[in-house]
């Protein structure tokens, strides 16, 4: 390397450092001074206290709202939302798969639409659905069902892109039409990947479903946000525990299933 080039490289390094420094100075500029409120310590203590002394009575209450019912609702929202998106994303996935189309612009437009759907946060979608169909679990199902199309459609289309072309050729050679080729040569090859991705998305949706209630779209989030705003830390504690246990257990089960599929 010539001396000139070396110096050039050094300069460049300093320019990068200057840019990064400028970005961070800008990023900190709007931050308020970090002053701990007088209450903060006390509240933290009571939160920790609540976590270690959860409100066990809330777990099961035959008369009214309780933890188990909330968790079951959350599970139902996540499950149904996942199923809805797993079905709705299929046409998008075939649209966006590059190996199934002759013209490039077709899969490219499909990929673009999927990335727009993906970018649209599920919470925002849930807010809009609440405005349309009213608050409740159904709005949550719709929000998850539509939002997940973005990611599942992308993953599905990638699965389609990696299939072996041989069976397609074989089916074409035996006189099958386009639909028959899809059904007999493409679908059997992609089903395991589709199932595995769907389970993965279910794990993500379960986490999302726990917060949908914060904005009124059903599930355990609603009693949780009530408990937080009313500073009922014992109850927050038991709900958090419930969420953590449910998510970990279902992650484990879904992981087992995914291993069996491959």
């Amino acid at each position: 390397m010539s001396l000139h080039k070396q110096q050039n490289k050094k300069w460049r390094k300093w320019i990068y450092i200057a840019i990064i420094a400028a970005i961070y100075i800008w990023a900190f500029s709007q931050m308020p001074a970090f002053e701990i409120q007088a209450m903060a310590g006390e509240i933290s203590r009571s939160i920790l206290n609540g976590l270690f002394n959860p409100d066990w009575d809330f777990v099961y209450d035959p008369g009214g709202e309780d933890l188990l019912r909330g968790l079951l609702d959350t599970l139902a929202i996540a499950f149904l939302g996942t199923i809805v998106s797993a079905v709705l994303c299929i046409p998008f996935a075939f649209w966006a798969a590059r190996n199934l189309h002759r013209y490039k612009f077709i899969p490219e437009s499909g990929t673009f639409i999927l990335s727009v759907i993906r970018t649209f946060p599920e919470i925002v979608m849930a807010i809009l659905f609440i405005k349309a169909v009213g608050p409740g679990a159904f709005a949550g199902v719709l929000a998850l069902g539509i939002h997940s199309i973005g990611m599942l459609g992308k993953l599905y289309s990638e699965a389609i892109e990696t299939i072996d072309d041989g069976p397609i050729e074989a089916l074409t050679a035996s006189g099958a039409n386009r639909l028959q080729i899809l059904w007999f040569a493409v679908v059997p090859q992609v089903i395991p990947a589709f199932l595995s991705y769907t389970l993965y998305r279910f794990e993500i949706n379960l986490r999302s479903a726990t917060i949908l209630g914060i904005i009124g779209a059903g599930g355990i989030g609603t009693p949780l946000i009530f408990a937080i705003t009313s500073r009922d830390w014992d109850r927050v504690g038991i709900i958090l525990l419930g969420i953590i246990v449910m998510v970990m257990v279902l992650d484990f089960l879904s992981g087992l299933l995914r291993k069996r599929i491959v």
Partner: peptide, 21 residues
């Protein structure tokens, strides 16, 4: 990773008050 971002935010708001922190 089990605790969703919005939930963390809600709890931190309860501790530190409204704002960016």
């Amino acid at each position: 990773r089990t605790i969703p971002d919005l939930l963390l935010a809600a709890i931190f708001v309860a501790i530190f008050g409204l704002g960016l922190i």
